[in-house]
Simulated assay, not measured.
Amino acid sequence: MSFIFKSPLDIELRLDGEDSRETVEQKGIKGRKEKLPLYKDGETVKGQVTIRTRDNKRVEHTGIKIQLLGTIETNNDGLVTDNFLSMAHELASPGELRHPETFPFEFRNVEKQYESYRGINVRLRYYLKVTVSRKSADVIREKELWVYQYQDPQSADSESVVPTSSVKMDVGIEDCLHIEFEYSKNKYSLKDVIVGRIYFLLVRLKIKHMELSLIRRESCGAPPNQLNESETVVKFEIMDGAPVRGETIPIRLFLGGFDLTPTYRDVNKKFSTRTFLSLVLIDEDARRYFKQSEIILYREKNE
């Protein structure tokens, strides 16, 4: 025989201005899409918690509190959760609940130093957690927030420096193939456009077609147990048929239509995400020739 615990309380957590606040649509753990309220670094988080008893029964408790938590969940060797933000307010001292009660809360000017992220083996999340402590089972209600971090082009990933105004990527096989892919820069906002050209300097292979891809690489944990996962965000064919020497193909790739994330480097010493531009050529014998080059992505304030 099994027993299903039914909570004696209903907890409603409402944020101030929630109906008019901008939201971000994200895919949940079970694949369902959910809309999460958007916050920025330094913004106050406030609202109300309403607690109702079920069936008008009296419920004793040993205290009610609300927490604002920031956690990084990694799954490279079992699920590990690390808190980088933890704030709490006591809403009520020990007592009993008989009728619906509403408790206001406010976390002022909260530093949110990282951007929210849902990856393959990593989740960085901010959430509110209401706990009604009881001698038996605690009653808990959570509400997730989504946080954006904005940067300007000068500060975006300042460790990565490419001094030239344009970037060149060569694909070459001695005496058989030499292709040069030139694009305008290596730092892009998430709504930017990659503009470039592909030059065929030497073509002695029978090239069947060519693809351009954006690949996101997620690194989780530290060596030797570091877990690296790559996923192709977008892939499209830019040429079908054999090119000739001297031919040029213009490239315009609009980033705004894709599910991209900013470049993260060693976030809280837990994970990194990087984005690569990948050029792939396939010949008539299905052999693949490719070259990858990293691009730095950042979120501008007007995005």
Results as ranks from 00 to 15, higher is better:
243 P>M: 06
255 L>V: 02
227 L>H: 05
260 L>C: 06
230 S>K: 04
265 R>D: 11
208 K>F: 09
213 S>N: 05
210 M>F: 04
236 F>Y: 15
262 P>I: 06
245 R>M: 15
232 T>V: 14
255 L>G: 09
259 D>Q: 13
199 Y>A: 09
209 H>Y: 14
240 D>Y: 15
200 F>Y: 15
199 Y>I: 00
199 Y>D: 12
226 Q>G: 07
205 L>R: 11
261 T>E: 12
258 F>D: 04
198 I>M: 07
213 S>Q: 10
226 Q>D: 07
249 I>T: 07
231 E>V: 05
205 L>P: 01
262 P>G: 04
215 I>P: 03
244 V>W: 13
227 L>M: 11
244 V>P: 00
230 S>E: 13
243 P>Q: 07
246 G>Q: 02
241 G>L: 08
212 L>W: 05
266 D>H: 09
218 E>W: 14
259 D>L: 09
237 E>K: 13
230 S>N: 10
227 L>T: 13
218 E>V: 04
259 D>R: 09
215 I>S: 07
222 A>D: 10
230 S>W: 03
248 T>D: 08
225 N>Q: 09
198 I>K: 01
232 T>C: 10
216 R>V: 01
259 D>N: 13
234 V>Q: 03
253 L>W: 15
208 K>Q: 15
255 L>F: 06
203 V>L: 06
263 T>N: 07
226 Q>C: 05
